[in-house]
Write a protein that binds this DNA or RNA. Structure first.
Lengths: 155, 155
DNA sequence: GCCCTCATGTCAACTATATTGACTTGAGAG
DNA sequence: CTCTCAAGTCAATATAGTTGACATGAGGGC
């Protein structure tokens, strides 16, 4: 469920660097791992995992989103969404209601319990980021964001 | 095999920010995606994927590594390593030989073909990083590394 | 009222990546 | 000859995703 636990995995910096930028590649990998590690542990304790969190995260920021729009934002198929979404509905972390005028669409919303879990999971990720930004200072944080934007937009 | 293709997925910045640090969470996600997108496409064309690349990457930087050590570095189980490793051996991208004195261990090494594929895949990741670092300048790159180190070491 | 479209829902089969547990093989050391 | 240990293999399971096919149900056009 989680790639975490004792899989301390790669003790960073144990590999020879063949290229100058190898350190950057590895930092991206370990950075992603480091940011999500605690959140994944928390989610696993709730019987949830990353895809559930992604759904909760998006719905929290787009209340009354329709299923089709959610599928687009997540970039997965309807069928892949189906299982985790139904679990969240069964667990009453999400509600779906038909829209008044657009009766074809179902609108998704977090319940109070869903909000709590979304917040706790995302908080764990934000905590890691906040600590790193505090160490780096405001200018370091801004530089990090600028580099990440350049990478994200490189497609 | 690849999460890529038309799954342009989340057009960045389409979500309302509930917290100041939400942008950072999303940038980490898109940054990872952005860095690995082209490499994953290339690997998919070779009939390979991320786990194969991880194996090739590590073996390239630790020639004559034993299987046990590889398992530790990758942080996966022996059984999970088995399939992708055997594929790489069948395809003659890796060779394994018994060590002269430590006959119990098999030592892994890249073939010329394995080196070529490892290099091409990693090059695509490095290219993305290099472009982002060029845009950010040397100080921006250093700041990015410092922040990522703080995140990676936060466990 | 009848049909077409379209969002949603569901079923089945498949692939890939991982897990744990149990067992075999093969070489070295005593 | 047996014990240990690295490596290999087999089976069952979970998770996360895919495509394809088809059902349902509401709105809109005529």
């Amino acid at each position: 469920m989680s790639k975490t636990s004792q899989a301390a995995g790669l003790h960073r910096a144990s590999l020879a660097k063949l290229h100058e930028l190898d350190a950057a590649l590895e930092l991206m990998y370990y950075g992603w791992r480091g940011m999500t590690l605690e959140a994944d542990d928390y989610l696993a304790k709730q019987g949830l995992s990353r895809p559930h969190h992604r759904i909760l995260y998006v719905v929290a920021r787009r209340p009354d989103i329709a299923i089709g729009a959610l599928i687009e934002i997540l970039g997965i198929s309807k069928q892949a969404l189906n299982r985790p979404l139904n679990l969240l509905l069964e667990r009453k972390l999400l509600t779906s209601k038909r829209s008044p005028e657009q009766h074809r669409s179902k609108l998704l919303r977090l319940t109070a319990a869903g909000q709590r879990i979304e917040q706790k999971a995302s908080d764990r990720e934000r905590k890691v980021m906040r600590q790193a930004f505090e160490r780096a200072g405001a200018s370091g944080a801004a530089a990090w964001m600028a580099v990440m934007e350049a990478i994200a937009d490189s497609n």
